[in-house]
Simulated assay, not measured.
Amino acid sequence: MTELAENLAENSAHTAARSVFVTGGNRGIGLAIARRFAAAGDRVAVTHRGEAPPAADDLLAVRCDVTDSEQVDQAFKEAEAAHGPVGVLVANAGFANDRLLMRMSDEDFTSVIDTNLTGAFRVVRRAVRGMLRQGHGRIVLISSTAALHGAAGQTNYAAAKAGLVGFARSLTHELGARDITCNVVAPGLTETDMSRALTEEQRRHLLARTPAGRLGHPDEVADAVAFLAAAGTGYVRGAVIPVDGGAGLGH
């Protein structure tokens, strides 16, 4: 656990446990985020589509396909019954289906949009209902640096992830003075199943564009999410935080 994570966990220990809902929290970045909240004493529910997180993790696993509004509603009901109204939502569920545009089918494009962008819309819409009743809440959307500088073969993925930025900033206007924030974390090349599927040539090319000279770790993304979800970050709204080793240089 990093020093930042330890400080956040210590601060969280002095506050009441929160009900946290992480989509796609059964592995990779989502699992690291879920574990970070659980380590801080929060009650955490994670969604999956059939592959639950490791049994040793103190997480509530709920089956949910974010492309189905009924499944989203049911997953929230299960989390609320076990942990109370959701106070922190992390919309992380997503996937890539890379293909050059001229070879990309309608399904290749729309399926990525439906999961990565419309899926986030579905879970945020469901979460905001309860947050408005509570009068507070924290929403963090997991985007990608592909949204900020693009990537060949990822017109579908980059478009979906870029849409999350406009979504977060528009929702920030809608929420106004309420203590409900919506921010974006944009990871770069990170040690996940997606990066492990890259060829050595692709990996070398991406690392050459990364000033840090290495891949990120899911815990480093979790650090940024935990910061944005903290009680004291209510004035941070509509922000995009890159966790990319400098690859995007702030863009």
Rank of each mutant, 00 (worst) to 15 (best):
E3H: 10
A5H: 09
E10N: 12
H14M: 13
V20A: 10
A32K: 02
A34E: 04
V44M: 06
T47R: 02
R49H: 06
P53Q: 07
L59H: 05
T67V: 04
Q71D: 07
A79Q: 03
E80Q: 15
A81N: 11
A82H: 13
G84W: 08
G87F: 05
A91I: 02
G94K: 00
G94N: 00
D98K: 02
M104C: 01
D108C: 06
T110S: 09
V124C: 12
R125G: 08
R126V: 01
R126P: 02
V128R: 10
R133H: 14
I139T: 07
L148N: 07
G153Y: 00
N156Y: 00
A158K: 06
A162T: 07
G166W: 03
A168T: 08
R169D: 09
R169P: 05
H173A: 15
E174D: 13
D179G: 12
I180S: 10
T181C: 11
A186F: 08
L189I: 08
T192G: 07
T192M: 06
H205R: 11
G216K: 08
E220K: 09
E220S: 08
D223I: 11
D223P: 06
A229F: 11
A231T: 14
A231P: 14
G238R: 07
I241C: 13
P242C: 10
V243F: 10
G250V: 14
